[in-house]
Design a protein around this nucleic acid. Structure first.
Lengths: 219, 219
DNA sequence: CTCTTTCTGTTGTAAAAACAACTGATTTGT
DNA sequence: ACAAATCAGTTGTTTTTACAACAGAAAGAG
């Protein structure tokens, strides 16, 4: 577990907490570590969950498959990110989506009851962590709203422009790589892969973008 | 302000806090009240915001208009709901969407700094409120994910089924009213109104649903 | 290195949605 | 109560997407 302190201290949740204090808190908060091979499920739709999770290393997708086998990728989780907090509230409901490892990953579980119900005065940084979690989930909320912004565009081209513009912004650069391959990007934007591939090429022909694999450049 | 205590005490944020304590906290938290006529903007895209807002009475929509005049309704706010918390984090960014009153409304503003940075020990319920806010924003996050679920459906019919099923669930009844008229529902689901109207009627003809104005019944 | 699998781009067709234009019903304002 | 504005439904046309099937390139396994 200690090997991940360097990762944890760079996360939003532990922002402002020192190494030694993080180690103390890992036991104070009842942290457990689980590892997953590529393709394994971290969470499954319908499960009960009373933990908040942090990705220590690897790469996860939040996704959902419907009756007909259509897959939607609802989100992308990178190291240091918190997830699962949505299901950890008192009126806890079942997990809505699958969370799957797209590469070998390590996840830290925190017992939400210990985080939220222990008297904050007991541990000097407990209060700070709750506040940090609040801001982290706010940030996440913001990203969901942005994704809704892409999804609400009517045409594939508009969705792509909306998504790529945001990624460019986020990287502060016209050139950037995305965490998806073509099929995954199509699933993320909820469009057909071949139609999207087609549209990407048209956009390139129109001089809007350049790309190679998952590297893109806006022109 | 006191007239809204009965509303506030039923909100998630003040869950578990007594009337007198709410009154005390309203000043402790630097609460301010603003009123809006139907059609007025509560928040505008691009604004800076350092408050958390609670709708005391009325009905708001979170919406966004693009270049071409297409409107997306990203969310719906009912009395007692918190909003704006996304923009209140320390690395505060500009407001992403408009929030507009769809009927005469009253909104309470809380200074986020006072909520988050005052020592929680100072006020017995301060900690409770921070925790409540955490759960409230989690719940909101959940709803955003559900909306993404509707939006990720490919056809208008699937989007409608997804949305109506969720509303039915939420009301624990096959019969329920929705907070949108047809145009607003179309904007919410990001589809064309006339096409949606058409699809609703087909669904009725297929024996899937009944409806009258904004009352729906699933069969 | 070779075989297999995955990934990306291409094309044609069928299905669905967007758009535009119009009607009648309902609501709102004066 | 009446005129104006908003709202919901209908239809036909155009545009866009989904789907299916395939081919070449790249990546991965043995």
């Amino acid at each position: 577990m200690k090997e991940y302190v360097s990762i944890l201290k760079r996360t939003k949740i532990f922002s402002g907490v020192k190494d030694e204090e993080i180690i103390t808190m890992l036991s104070c908060l009842g942290a457990r570590l689980s590892e997953y091979k590529k393709g394994e499920y971290v969470l499954r739709q319908g499960e009960q969950l009373s933990d908040i999770l942090v990705l220590a290393e690897g790469h996860l997708h939040i996704q959902k498959d419907d009756y007909w086998g259509n897959r939607s990728i609802l989100g992308n989780i990178e190291p240091g990110e918190m997830f699962g907090e949505v299901y950890a509230s008192p009126q806890s409901e079942a997990v809505l989506n699958d969370v799957v490892a797209v590469e070998d990953s390590a996840v830290i579980f925190f017992d939400v009851k210990r985080i939220m119900t222990t008297c904050p005065a007991a541990c000097r940084f407990h209060t700070l962590v709750v506040q940090n979690m609040f801001f982290a989930i706010s940030e996440k909320n913001r990203r969901l709203v942005q994704k809704l912004g892409h999804m609400s565009k009517r045409t594939t081209r508009e969705k792509l422009i909306s998504y790529l513009s945001e990624e460019s912004n986020r990287h502060n650069s016209a050139k950037f790589t995305i965490p998806f391959n073509r099929q995954q990007l199509a699933d993320f934007l909820s469009v057909d892969r071949s139609a999207m591939s087609n549209e990407l090429c048209k956009m390139r022909d129109d001089g809007l973008i350049e790309f190679e694999k998952n590297m893109f450049r806006l022109l």
